[in-house]
């Protein structure tokens, strides 16, 4: 089956920032978490996928088709949620939807109304009176109401309370019950992804860090904590994002670099995605300072 998304060697540079050689792909039926610190280039990548920004070089294919050449037919099957409110804010959502819905061939008004109801959105109040979370929920309702096969979400959970966030996760599972649909979910709050994500793509300062199955990533690393006196040169070299403090150290270690001499001298914990992000970014900063 053809891939939902395929990106090869994508480049885009701005005056003060560049996205370099980004490559990853997403198969149908899965949820991919797209992570990285603020300013890593997540939104830029998403805007490039949506052809809101013009790429400098590289290839982006959606449903196996070039994303610029087949832009119109591709977008029929994409549901998008952006991190900012881009709606006309002096309209109510009912009026806004009247503008948006006719553009989709497969618009499902009943489903849309179902989500509006579920999200408890006021149908006739102006969008400018909405909170950030309400705008996000409205955005979601639109994205989920035209039978899209590819849902792209840029920081959708920012501004949502835990209850709505958990509801959102249920909805996302519902979407991938149909094995043909996939979700790309960018966030710097990785907690939501610890559970739901099948794949994780991690970028930092415009560069790829990795794009792999989540379970595999979580098994590849361990957080270790211990006494500073065990930090020999060889061990230091293996540790990722080492942080020394008054009463010890903490760092991340790739499981393949496991050293039996550490046994019983360190505390070992399985990492979550946030740990992996923090230690990797810290390591990257330390290397940058060193060089």
């Amino acid at each position: 089956m053809e891939k939902i998304l395929e990106i090869n060697n994508l480049n885009k540079s701005f005056q003060d920032f560049a996205l370099k050689d980004i490559s990853f792909s997403l198969e149908p039926g899965y949820i991919m978490g797209f992570i990285g610190p603020n300013g890593a280039g997540k939104s830029t990548t998403i805007k490039l996928i949506m052809n809101l920004l013009k790429k400098d070089s590289g290839e982006i294919k959606i449903f196996g088709k070039d994303h610029v050449r087949y832009e119109k037919e591709i977008k029929e099957d994409i549901g998008f949620v952006y991190d900012q409110n881009h709606f006309y804010d002096n309209l109510s959502i009912t009026d806004m939807t009247k503008i948006l819905a006719p553009f989709y061939k497969k618009w499902d008004q009943a489903r849309y109304l179902h989500y509006i109801e579920q999200f408890e959105l006021p149908k006739h109040r102006l969008i400018k009176e909405f909170s950030k979370g309400m705008v996000m929920k409205y955005s979601l309702a639109v994205a989920l109401s035209h039978q899209a096969r590819f849902i792209i979400m840029d920081e959708p959970t920012a501004g949502l309370d835990p209850i709505i966030r958990s509801e959102l996760l249920d909805i996302l599972y519902e979407i991938i019950q149909d094995e043909t649909a996939s979700i790309l979910f960018s966030t710097h709050i990785t907690k939501d992804l610890d559970k739901i994500a099948d794949y994780i793509t991690f970028i930092n300062r415009g560069n790829m860090v990795f794009s792999r199955p989540k379970d595999e990533i979580l098994e590849s690393y361990r957080v270790v904590k211990g006494d500073k006196n065990i930090l020999t040169g060889a061990i230091r070299k293996k540790l990722i994002g080492l942080k020394e403090h008054g009463v010890g150290f903490e760092a991340m270690l790739a499981t393949k670099d496991w050293d039996n001499s550490l046994q019983e001298r360190v505390l070992i914990e399985p990492p979550n995605l946030e740990d992996i992000m923090i230690y990797t970014v810290r390591e990257d900063r330390q290397n940058k300072i060193d060089s």
């Binding site: 832009e71 881009h86 709606f87 804010d89 553009f103 989709y104």
Partner: peptide, 14 residues
């Protein structure tokens, strides 16, 4: 004001 062009450029439109 809201850069609404982003929405329309994301819809199935040329």
């Amino acid at each position: 004001k809201k850069n609404t062009g982003v929405i329309f450029a994301s819809l199935p439109l040329r």
